[in-house]
Design a protein around this nucleic acid. Structure first.
Length: 427
RNA sequence: GUGGGCGUAGCUCAGUUGGUUAGAGCGCCGGAUUGUGGUUCCGGAGGUCGCCGGUUCGAGCCCGGUCGUCCACCCCA
């Protein structure tokens, strides 16, 4: 309810400490896994020239962007995704860099659309990319990072799975089915949403958009329903243009199996991805229960760098948003309990000990400990209560008697045990 | 952008067929407890019932609009 005069903008989130804790937990996990794979962190500006997105996705995307004209008459967009920025950044400097380039980022991204569950107007998205390597090992490496990112958060093969495909393989198969070259993009678009369409609607679109007859549509459905590379090879493997694509997909899957990630991976030709710039292997991560939106999506985009004016370099990467992931973690009970914690709470028993308490607090802080104390003179009982609320591990009690005999009393708040610490140790 | 459900305290909610001063639990603040916390007991603060308008003698409750939120479309970084 909007009790405050100024309401938060729809689709945007506040992060009070108890919510910020989950955000940190997720981002720190992402960062650990990235580094484990040798990726380096980068970032770019949240505002970019509007043309950066129009260039590779078409004018329609402008309707889903936060955009405006700045005081210098420049058309500006708040970044809706990171990949074009990465392409732009590398375009300026990739020539001098050793390949492959392994970079990751966790940008806050924006889009102007009506919010729904798992879909806000702002989110943090983990982006991981390998640039300058066109072999399937890079594709496998990137997917492995995405899978490990989820495993790091406590999710397992029982919770989520990757569905993988390859636009080159799908193109070859569609040509075999009878889709003409100029109709491939239209066919991709229909296949991308075919799971969400009722059967007759899908058939109608395949007829009108992809120009397929009923027999071809039946063959296509048969193809899309095929699970496993062996079955696909048995049915379509004797076509000259399909065989090498199947072989590549086989190598990709075998690489992931060699990593021990086989249980997470399923070949599924219905995975196409919406973005226009993907050129090869594409994948999405889903929760096994199928209750949520895709957790993560990515793939190979070998022409994007050249398209934005850079060195022509092959690239593969993914984006994983924090919103759907947060819901999945909550559903599986994997959100860590929020707890405040501080190393020491210092209690001057009477106001006379306050200067000594301040001195000790600073000594301990200089040593790297977290230290809190009451900001005004209070009864010991009150201060103890405050110490408990702060989550203090240890309370240091400074009474007149204690200080007189040259020590402070350290109380362990979990066990209640107390012991003396000589002031000489806190000098 | 289209259609629908829902908006009562910081949070989760109750509130009889419209009836006069709007409630609970948790949380928050304080006291019991001026050298010892988490328990317990007692007390307190906090709401123009999302907002605007309408119907009515009377609206938290009915009607319209609006904003927010959720769901389904659209779209999908």
């Amino acid at each position: 309810m909007a009790t405050s005069e100024f309401a938060r903008l729809p689709g945007f989130r506040d992060f009070p400490p108890e919510d910020f804790a989950l955000r940190s937990h997720v981002q720190e996990s992402w960062r650990r896994v990235s580094r484990r794979y040798g990726f380096l962190e980068y970032d770019g500006p949240p505002l970019e020239p509007l043309e950066l997105y129009v260039e590779k996705s078409g004018e329609e995307i402008v309707g889903q962007l936060y955009n405006f004209v700045d005081k210098g008459d420049r058309a500006i967009a708040m970044r809706p995704e990171m990949t074009p920025s990465l392409a732009r950044i590398l375009g300026d400097r990739s020539r001098g860099m050793s390949k492959p380039i392994r970079w990751f980022s966790m940008p806050q991204l924006f889009r102007y659309e009506r919010q729904q569950r798992g879909r806000l107007r702002e989110h943090f998205q983990w982006n991981v990319d390998i640039v300058g390597e066109d072999g399937v090992a890079a594709d496998a490496e990137v997917l492995a990072v995405a899978i490990d990112g989820l495993r790091e958060l406590g999710l397992s093969a029982a919770d989520f799975a990757a569905r993988v495909s390859d636009r080159r393989l799908l193109s070859a198969l569609l040509r075999v089915v009878g889709v003409t070259e100029d109709r491939l993009p239209a066919a991709f678009a229909v296949i991308d949403k075919i799971e969400r369409l009722p059967g007759e609607k899908a058939a109608e679109l395949l007829r009108s958009e992809a120009r397929l007859d009923p027999e071809q549509i039946a063959t296509l459905h048969d193809m899309l329903d095929t699970r496993g590379l062996d079955d696909l090879a048995a049915r379509f493997g004797d076509h000259a243009e399909v065989a090498p694509e199947l072989q590549r997909m086989r190598e990709y899957v075998e690489t992931l199996e060699a990593m021990g990630l086989g249980p997470y991976v399923t070949v599924d030709l219905r995975i196409v991805r919406g973005l226009a710039y993907y050129t090869g292997i594409v994948f999405e991560l889903f929760d096994r229960k199928g209750e949520l939106r895709a957790i993560c999506g990515g793939g190979r985009y070998d022409r994007l760098l050249e398209l934005v004016g850079g060195e022509p370099l092959p690239a593969v990467g993914f984006g994983m948003g924090d919103v759907v992931l947060g819901e999945l973690l909550a559903d599986r009970g994997l959100v860590p309990q929020y707890e405040r914690s501080v190393d020491y709470f210092i209690v001057p028993v009477t106001p006379e000990q306050r200067p000594e308490a301040l001195r000790i607090a600073h000594v301990l802080r200089d040593r790297g400990h977290g230290v809190v104390y009451a900001l005004r003179d209070q009864a010991v009982g009150r201060q103890m209560k405050a110490a408990a609320k702060e989550g203090a591990q240890t309370v240091l009690l400074l009474g007149p008697d204690d200080v007189a005999r040259g020590c402070v009393v350290a109380r362990d708040m979990s066990t209640g045990e107390e012991r003396d610490i000589p002031l000489s140790e806190l000098a």
